[in-house]
Every structure is written in structure tokens, then in C-alpha cells.
């Protein structure tokens, strides 16, 4: 009785809440500058990139082995399983290579739904979804990736901001 009356008289819960938020405020207030071990969760995006989770699904990328050879053997498993049919492979041959060689590997990102079925179906680990998330572009053609020609490269991570018009303006 007396305890409950005292509880209504003195707001202990408010005190507890204020103490908690005050603790967090003090912590972040003192260490709000950039340092190795951050206390806050803010990502200062354009300058500092967020470290993504390993399973993040970014853009489709082809992988080369240690000799610089394309690992893809044109089994067309990825082309078949793709729900939106964004992958087109043209089978070909190359001198001194036993397995088939893709002469064309086209990837149209504008329709891609980033489901990672292609990567899962690949039996040779020759494609991955890399960690690139800055995929916006001003022209529709920029979303067509292939093995040849200019920046339409299937092998590398695209340079950041490469697609933006602003880069050309400055």
C-alpha cells in the first residue's frame, strides 16, 4: 500500500527512462566524431561506404580463374532458370580450350530481379552477384551489360558514379 502510493507519488519509471536515454546521449555526444570504433549507427554514405553483408545481392558479375580464363562453360543453366530472361549466352569455341567458350554473355539489368537463381544454378561457380549497389543510370542502354565494349563489362565492379551524367558535366 505504502509502496504503491510512493510509486504514484514519485515517478521512478520516468527517472529510469531518462537515465537510459541520458546515458546514450552522453556516449554519442562525447564520441560523435569519426573514429575507428563508432558508437553511433549512422553511415556517412557518399564519403564512407557501408560494409555490406556477405549475402548481399548486387550486380551480376562473371569470374575468371587464376589463369585469367573465363570460368563459364556455356551450360546455359543460368539462362534457363532466369525468371525474367535477362541472360543471353552464345556458345562458341576458343583455341586451346576443351570446354565451350561464351562468345557473348549479355545481361540486361533493367529487367533483373536480383533473385540469385542464376548463381545458385551455376555448377562451375563462374558467376556471382557482387556487392555493388550504386546501379542507377540515366540511359536505358547503360543497363545492358556484355563481355565487350567500353564500360559494359561483365568482369569488374563498375566504378562508382560511372553512369551518372554529372560525371560527364564536371
Amino acid at each position: 500500500m505504502a509502496a504503491s502510493f510512493l510509486r504514484t507519488l514519485i515517478p521512478f519509471d520516468i527517472y529510469g527512462g531518462m537515465k537510459l536515454t541520458g546515458k546514450y546521449f552522453g556516449k554519442v555526444f562525447i564520441q560523435s566524431n569519426r573514429q575507428k570504433k563508432r558508437t553511433h549507427f549512422t553511415a556517412e554514405y557518399p564519403e564512407v561506404k557501408v560494409k555490406l553483408a556477405p549475402r548481399y545481392r548486387g550486380r551480376l558479375q562473371m569470374i575468371k580463374d587464376e589463369q585469367g580464363e573465363i570460368k563459364c562453360v556455356c551450360c546455359l543453366a543460368c539462362e534457363k532458370i532466369c525468371p525474367t530472361q535477362v541472360i543471353t549466352i552464345e556458345k562458341g569455341k576458343k583455341e586451346g580450350r576443351k570446354t565451350p567458350y561464351p562468345t557473348r554473355y549479355d545481361f540486361e539489368m533493367e529487367r533483373c530481379i536480383f533473385c540469385e537463381f542464376c548463381v545458385e544454378s551455376c555448377g562451375f561457380d563462374s558467376i556471382i552477384l557482387n556487392h555493388q549497389f550504386e546501379l542507377a543510370a540515366y540511359n536505358r542502354e547503360d543497363f545492358s551489360h556484355g563481355m565487350e565494349g567500353g564500360f559494359q563489362n561483365m568482369f569488374d565492379v563498375t566504378p562508382v558514379g560511372h553512369y551518372s551524367v554529372a560525371e560527364d558535366v564536371q
Binding site: T21, Y24, F25, S32, H40, F41, T42, E44
Partner: peptide, 13 residues
């Protein structure tokens, strides 16, 4: 700023 720090954010930077 204060609300951001309480919520372990940085607020306007």
C-alpha cells in the same frame, strides 16, 4: 542533434 544522439544517430551533418 539531441534527439539523434539519444537514438544513437548523428543527426544533421
Amino acid at each position: 542533434k539531441v534527439i539523434a544522439y539519444v537514438q544513437v544517430r548523428l543527426g544533421a551533418t
